[in-house]
């Protein structure tokens, strides 16, 4: 059942990194229209950027022809962003907490995104379905 005061926005883009700017604009506009405060908007934008960059790089292996779909939903005091793709799934439990001193020694350039998403959002849930869809649900309290 949808709540009566639920507002939602949708966007689908190809998995090319040049679309990250379009995704950020989409979130910014949707958040502005629903009155989410600026500081929270910045956090959601970055979390969605991190999620999208990971999907482009890992799920679609840098193939720019994959599709990524976004739903931005505000319901009551909560904002939810649902991101789906049809790329290769992953096991979030296998993602290590970043160890910056070690990463620097190793000259590693990735491995921060998932951790950042968890810091920025109140809840991060990932599901890889048997029908070939991966679904990431990011939730943030807005009031």
């Amino acid at each position: 059942m949808k709540e009566a005061n639920e507002i939602s926005y949708h966007l689908t883009v190809k998995s090319s990194t040049e679309n990250l700017a379009i995704v950020r604009d989409f979130i910014r506009k949707a958040a502005d229209e629903t009155g989410v405060n600026t500081e929270v908007v910045h956090k959601i934008i970055l979390a969605v950027d991190e999620a999208s960059s990971n999907i482009m790089r890992h799920a679609y292996k840098n193939n720019p022809e994959g599709e990524i779909s976004y739903s931005f939903i505000v319901s009551g005091s909560e904002c939810t962003v649902i991101i789906t793709d049809q790329g290769v799934g992953f096991n979030p439990a296998a993602v290590r907490k970043p160890d910056l001193p070690v990463y620097i020694k190793e000259g590693k350039r990735g491995g921060l995104g998932m951790h950042l998403m968890k810091i920025l959002m109140d809840n991060v849930q990932y599901e890889s379905t048997e029908s070939g869809f991966n679904k990431l649900v990011l939730t943030k309290k807005i009031a």
Partner: peptide, 17 residues
């Protein structure tokens, strides 16, 4: 105006060298 972890990663990758 804006940086994501991909940007931070650039600084992680080269500072040791």
């Amino acid at each position: 105006d804006y940086i994501s972890s991909a940007g931070l990663g650039v600084f992680m990758a080269y500072i040791e060298q």
